[in-house]
Every structure is written in C-alpha cells, then in structure tokens.
C-alpha cells in the first residue's frame, strides 16, 4: 500500500484541481456566513421585539435541523416552488445559513459579554444608538468573538465536504470518482483526502490558537 509512491502522486495530481473548488466554496460561504452571523447576531439584541423574534426563529430553525437535510431541501425541494439553485449556490447557501446561525450565537454572546456600564457610559456621553454600537460595543465585542468565529470556519471547512452529496465536484466528490474508477486506489485516495483537508485546516487552526492567545492580551482585567 505504501510501497508505490507514484500512486500517491498520480492521485494527488487528479485531486488538486478539485481542491480549488473546495477552497472556492469555503471562501464564498465563509463571507456569507459572517455577513449572516452579524445581521442575525445584532438582530437578536435588537430593540424591536419583532426583529428579535424573527432572528430567533431563523437561528433555532437552522440549528434544530441537520445541515445535510437543509442542503437537500434547498437543492431538491425548493425547485417545487420554482426556485432553482445550481449545486454550487445551493451548497453555499445551505452552508452559510447553517453556520451563520451558529456564528450568530457567537456574535450575540460577545455583545452581551460587554459590561452594561459601557452602554450606560455611552448614553451618558449622549451617543446615538448607532455610535454606541459602532464606537463602543462592537470594537470590544469583536476581539471576544474572533476565536469563536475562527473555530466556526474550521467547522465550515468540514461542512463543505457535504456538497459532494449534491454532486458538486469538490475534493470529496473527486476522491469518490477516483476511487470508483480504480478500486485499488481506495486506501491512498482517502488517506490523501484526509491529509489535504487537514492541510487546508492548518492555517485556520494556527489562526485560532493565535486569536485565543491574543484575545486577552492588552485588555485590562475587570
């Protein structure tokens, strides 16, 4: 199994183009995830109860069901209403809505973690609601939420493998095709897949460690 290094190079050569697809999905859905997370996270602490309720329903709906079910629903069931997405956008949408719901909890938690006195002080300084959020609360909340959002991106990377089940040609999908056409490649294909995913995750892991270490640095302990 390990004796033929050429087999590994042959497979790697075929896998790498699909790696770009995985990275493309990861980046697109990460951007969308964080956008949704901020909107939903701020919505959860809104002054209007209708916005709070709507975002709560969104978050609970997407955290209460499976990512794969959501992906299948968007790709196979939504067309019944005349809404059709390509495999790429169905995958990206499902990933973003699902992980956005989880990440919005990180955003909400970090905002709530800012002491109430900060809000009171900005009110005393006659700041508007928007100024209070932009100048006082978010800059402080941001550094608290970074490690959480970083972890979220690793989970997101793992989630991208699910798009292979709606026939999108990512790493996992390509791996399965290589394995199907040449069964003797089975072991090296899956070993390489795991290693490739780990290599993509590695910068994210290191980033999270750094963020965790620096999250408390230079901040006065209360």
């Amino acid at each position: 199994m390990w004796d033929n290094i050429n087999v590994y190079f042959d497979i790697l050569h075929k896998l790498l183009p699909a790696g770009w697809m995985t990275i493309k999905i990861l980046i697109t859905s990460a951007l969308l995830t964080y956008l949704i997370a901020f909107i939903a996270g701020l919505g959860r602490v809104s002054q209007f109860s209708i916005i709070r309720t709507l975002t709560l329903i969104y978050v609970e709906l997407f955290r209460g069901t499976s990512l794969l079910v959501q992906m299948f629903w968007i790709f196979f069931a939504l067309p019944a209403f005349g809404v059709e997405f390509s495999a790429f956008w169905a995958g990206v949408l499902a990933l973003s809505l699902n992980y956005g719901a989880y990440a919005s909890e990180v955003v909400r938690g970090s905002i709530l973690a800012i002491p109430k006195t900060q809000t009171e002080a900005s009110i005393a300084l006659n700041m508007t609601r928007w100024q209070r959020l932009k100048l006082v609360i978010l800059p402080q909340a941001f550094r608290i939420m970074l490690p959480g959002l970083g972890n979220n991106s690793i989970e997101l990377l793992k989630g991208t493998s699910l798009v292979s089940l709606i026939t999108l040609g990512d790493l996992t999908y390509r791996g399965l095709i290589i394995q199907n056409t040449n069964l003797s490649y089975t072991v090296p294909v899956f070993i390489l897949l795991l290693i490739l995913y780990f290599i993509i995750a590695l910068p994210l892991i290191i980033l999270v460690r750094r963020l965790e270490a620096s999250a408390s640095k230079g901040v006065a302990k209360v």
Binding site: K158, S161, L162, S164, T172, Q179, L194
Partner: peptide
C-alpha cells in the same frame, strides 16, 4: 479538523 464524511468513507 477533517470532515466526518471523509472519515466515514
């Protein structure tokens, strides 16, 4: 940090 789906395969 690797996908459970690939681990399953």
């Amino acid at each position: 940090s690797t996908p459970p789906l690939v681990q399953l395969f």
